[in-house]
């Protein structure tokens, strides 16, 4: 349950943790966009090296980083199998009924899996190195321009941060209520489906009751401190871009440039199995072997 409570934040105090959260958010978006331009194995290698550098600098154990893959493992295998068996372009290697395996199919499957895995690992880096509160601040700051078209950005942000703030509290509360009802003999993990659903009632009702109570108390506490979301408020912790963010951006820029060069400047024939830099490397090998 702690996993949910703290988000996935993994505190190490590394330079990556100390980056401006706005910068990290933008970097993650850029990463998400440009990973779709990675079309050759060489480009994936660039991305892999980049992520390795980030992981090492962030001082996060590789095991924790790979944990995020567990959640999409099923998706990876499922899409992988479908692509592998149903992709019908390219040279046929094997076929049975409607299933075919082609060389392009294998290539496509591996690349799709790589792309998904690297995408998840990369975006997960954001939540591993940034607290949910920092993220909320970053979103508020980045959405500021919307204020001019009368979007209540600050209200949205404060609602979001309150919601985030109360996730652990509600999780704790849920744990306590579940424990209390279990102590009264409630069984949550046995019985038929409708029995199990029914067994949630004694948990959900107290949970709702206490959420409303908390909301009331919180509203009173905000009022008592003259909280006013509409006036220009100042911040205790101001977000500031620094040289660190610039360096991080330059490193990301190198990755993006490498991916784009690989994608657009290399001239592999369209009928070749290999794309981008891969084509040259394979040719180089071929000429070596003779």
């Amino acid at each position: 349950m702690r996993d949910v409570a703290f988000g996935q934040y993994y505190p190490t105090g590394s330079p990556i943790h100390r980056l401006d959260p706005r910068a990290k958010l933008i970097f993650s978006l850029l990463f998400m966009i440009f990973i779709f331009f990675a079309k050759s194995y060489t480009a994936f290698l660039y991305v892999f090296i980049f992520l390795t550098i980030v992981t090492v600098v962030a001082k996060i154990p590789p095991k924790i980083v790979l944990k995020s893959l567990k959640l999409i493992l099923f998706l990876l295998i499922f899409t992988g199998l479908i692509n592998l068996f149903l992709y019908d372009e390219g040279r046929l290697l094997a076929s049975w009924w409607i299933f075919t395996i082609t060389d392009k199919g294998i290539d496509f499957t591996i690349k799709l899996a790589l792309r998904l895995a690297l995408l998840v690992i990369g975006t997960n880096m954001l939540s591993l190195t940034t607290t949910p509160m920092e993220l909320t601040d970053a979103i508020e700051s980045l959405l500021k321009p919307l204020k001019y078209i009368k979007v209540p950005v600050h209200d949205l942000a404060i609602t979001m941060s309150i919601a985030l703030r109360f996730i652990p509290t509600l999780m704790d509360e849920t744990d306590k209520i579940i424990a209390a009802q279990k102590a009264r003999g409630a069984a949550f993990d046995t019985g038929k489906v409708h029995e199990r659903v029914k067994s949630l009632v004694p948990v959900l009702i107290p949970l709702f009751v206490s959420s409303f109570r908390r909301a009331d108390e919180l509203a009173d506490a905000l009022d008592a401190r003259c909280y006013n979301a509409t006036k220009n408020r100042t911040k205790m912790k101001k977000l500031k871009f620094s040289y660190r963010d610039l360096i991080a951006f330059l490193i990301l820029a190198v990755l993006i440039v490498l991916i784009m060069l690989d994608c657009y400047l290399t001239k592999a024939p369209s009928d070749s199995l290999f794309f981008g830099t891969d084509y040259y490397i394979v040719n180089l090998f071929k000429s070596w072997i003779g």
Binding site: E173, K176, I177, A179, A180, R184, P202, P206, V209
Partner: peptide
């Protein structure tokens, strides 16, 4: 077992 603030478990 009677927990802390057991009235919060009433439903």
């Amino acid at each position: 077992m009677v927990f802390q603030y057991p009235e919060y478990q009433l439903f």
